[in-house]
């Protein structure tokens, strides 16, 4: 039951549209989502419901839940444990 990265090796460099909080980016399918967000200076994965501060991934190992975002299906995902899929649309949790 390993993760399906959504890309077979022939389509590896397939570029897809990744929408983060309404802004569109070109991203490679199967690439690390955490790496992509960091590289592109997107530092708001969630907004804390109490303090209303913007947060970014903190622990990088699926423990702190600060990198939780909501995808196009309304499911919560942890950015640090996710690869980029085709046509992903992400919103910061708590916005």
């Amino acid at each position: 039951m390993s993760l399906e990265y959504g890309a077979s090796s022939s389509e590896i460099r397939e570029v897809t549209q990744l929408v983060v909080n309404g802004k569109s980016y070109d991203a490679c399918v199967g690439e690390s989502l955490l790496g992509f967000l960091f590289q592109n200076g997107i530092s708001s994965t969630s907004v804390n419901l109490v303090t209303k501060e913007v947060r970014f991934a903190f622990c990088g190992m699926g423990m702190c839940s600060e990198c939780e975002m909501i995808d196009e299906n309304g499911s919560i995902l942890r950015v640090c444990q996710t690869s980029i899929r085709r046509n992903m649309t992400l919103t910061s949790r708590g916005i």
């Binding site: 990265y5 460099r13 690390s32 690869s83």
Partner: peptide
């Protein structure tokens, strides 16, 4: 592990 896409790159 690197993700599949990152490994290929």
């Amino acid at each position: 592990r690197r993700t599949k896409g990152t490994t290929e790159l």
